[in-house]
Design a binder for these strands. Structure first.
Length: 492
RNA sequence: GGCCCCAUCGUCUAGAGGCCUAGGACACCACUCUUUCAAGGUGGCGGCCCGGGUUCGAAUCCCGGUGGGGUCACCA
């Protein structure tokens, strides 16, 4: 089904990195647009001149691109209703504000930030809701001129309705009724510095960008009446609203830095695959309705609908993301994983800067036998370290179990076998190893375990014969000798 | 505090009055496969916030409580 009129937007403010909640909001917008064949628009809400940075805007667009959430209109791409940075749309806001002023739907307010803060504090102390009292609403022309000549720069406030109610028809929440008297006051639409406030810029842009559906986090639900009365005052059609549940930290509080990784960029650095993050996020607050958990994104697109988005805030826990990521690592294209892993191995000092073809092939083989043991790319350098450097030591429990005079003898015989086996491939090595065990009258495991410890320093890992092949004969023989010497010196 | 939203296993969720003895997934615990680990397979643990209604029948509908969250800026 293609509805050309579906136009949705993701509108981050560039004051930090894209966090997991923002990414999920972007994802739902994107899924909705793609499902309906509509347009996904990216708008940068940089009206907070103190906190907005270009670096942050770039970080956010980079991350969205990395996640595969491509936009049809927005930064770097343009579009028919741009510009897509609010800082470049000031003329529009001023024009629209002027219209409200002329229609007597707005008025200049000369109260200072300090005065307002003081009054709010006072109201709070008296247990009253901190609302603007509308004192500048009825200023005479003369009073305005006097205040202005005092050097006061006015902000602009909307004349909000004092009675009646504003009803939001939310696609996820249903009908939400707000009593104007209790929820609205004459809020600021243009700051005294001539820049628009969030609610004003948002309402103006959503209308001028012909946004059909505003899909955003639930924290904006209580802003919606404000934007609706602005639409009414400006003569705009009201978009459809859908407020998606919030993503909370494990302690049920709002997600923040102290809860560990929350920025998508951090997950990228930790070695999560974008498709895994997308899959996980899609399932946070939405489900296909059956028991499916692992779904390629095109399937999510075809199944996605707002009425399957639930209303309950979801607690974000990394465990399931890890599992999803592990699943995707197991099925990912091997060459792609090689490309992703090589820089990490270089950073760990395990590989030289230019990687030659044989080395690349070796990394590929290590991944082939080792990837199912990792849940993130980030774990891999440590997990595979012994393929690149000598084991720094031997696992404590492993030594107690597998290193003793008897195993030193076994290892030395195993070394002889490995020195002679031809060709040096897993099948022949395994056959030779099992023959040795038989000759010694012991289970193969009693040869295998000490060997693994000697070669890797660990008791866990891929199949021993794969390890031996990937280490190469020379390294294997050297590490066995070293282990045998170690045992005789320390555990004899 | 006012206003608004929400409420199913620890977590993510299925559930739109009888299909529910509440299903799946992650995590956890066993067992299994196996040279170890991982992956896989099998099984287990574990939940409808509480109280009233409505109904022959309520996880599902209504009301009230409780709990959690959001929001009340010249931040977005």
């Amino acid at each position: 089904m293609v509805d050309e009129r579906v136009r949705v937007r993701f509108a981050p403010s560039p004051t930090g990195y894209l966090h997991i909640g923002g990414a999920r909001t972007a994802l739902f917008n994107w899924l909705f647009a793609r499902h309906h064949g509509g347009a996904f628009i990216l708008r940068i809400e940089d009206t907070d001149r103190e906190r907005s940075t270009e670096a942050s805007a770039r970080a956010i667009t980079d991350t969205l691109r990395w996640l595969g959430l491509d936009w049809d209109e927005g930064p770097e791409k343009g579009g028919p209703v741009g510009p897509y940075f609010q800082s470049e749309r000031l003329d529009l806001y001023r024009r629209e504000a002027q219209r409200l002023l002329e229609a007597d739907r707005a008025y200049p307010c000369y109260c200072t930030v300090e005065e307002l803060e003081e009054r709010r504090q006072e109201a709070r102390n008296r247990g009253l809701p901190p609302r603007y009292d509308g004192r500048c609403r009825h200023l005479t022309e003369a009073e305005r001129r006097r205040l202005e000549s005092d050097g006061r720069r006015p902000a602009l406030r909307i004349k909000a309705p004092e009675t009646g109610q504003t009803v939001v028809q939310d696609l996820i929440r249903g009908t939400v009724v707000f009593e104007n008297e209790k929820t609205l006051d004459d809020f600021v639409i243009m700051k005294s510095d001539g820049w628009p406030t969030y609610n004003f810029a948002c309402a103006v842009d959503d209308a001028h960008m012909r946004i059909s559906h505003v899909i955003r986090a639930e924290e904006h639900l209580s802003n919606t009446p404000k934007q609706m009365i602005l639409c009414e005052a400006l003569g705009y059609a009201v978009p459809r609203f859908a407020h998606v549940p919030m993503i909370l930290a494990p302690d049920r509080s709002k997600l923040s830095k102290r809860h560990g990784a929350v920025a998508v960029e951090e997950f990228r650095e930790a070695g999560y695959l974008p498709e895994a993050i997308i899959n996980y996020l899609a399932l946070l607050g939405w489900s296909p309705g059956d028991d499916r958990e692992i779904m390629p994104v095109h399937e999510v697109i075809s199944l996605f609908s707002l009425d399957r988005v639930n209303k309950t805030a979801a607690i974000y826990a990394v465990e399931k993301l890890k599992w999803v990521n592990g699943v995707y690592i197991r099925v990912a294209d091997l060459d792609r994983l090689v490309d992703l892993l090589i820089p990490r191995l270089q950073r760990a000092g395990y590989l030289p800067a230019p990687v030659d073809a044989p080395t690349r092939e070796r990394v590929r083989q290590i991944l082939a036998v080792g990837r199912e043991r990792a849940r993130t790319l980030g774990e891999m350098p440590e997990l595979f370290s012994y393929f690149f450097v000598e084991p720094a030591g031997y696992d404590e429990k492993g030594m107690r179990k597998y290193f003793n005079p008897e195993t030193a003898e076994i290892l030395s015989q195993a070394r002889e076998v490995l020195a002679g086996v031809e060709p040096f491939v897993p099948e022949t090595i395994e056959t030779a190893y099992r023959a040795l065990a038989e000759r010694l009258g012991i289970p193969a495991a009693q040869v295998i375990h000490p060997t693994r410890l000697a070669l890797t320093g660990r008791t866990v890992g891929p199949g021993l014969f794969d390890i031996i092949l990937l280490l190469g004969r020379e390294t294997v023989l050297a590490r066995l000798s070293r282990a045998i010497d170690f045992i005789r010196a320390n555990r004899g």
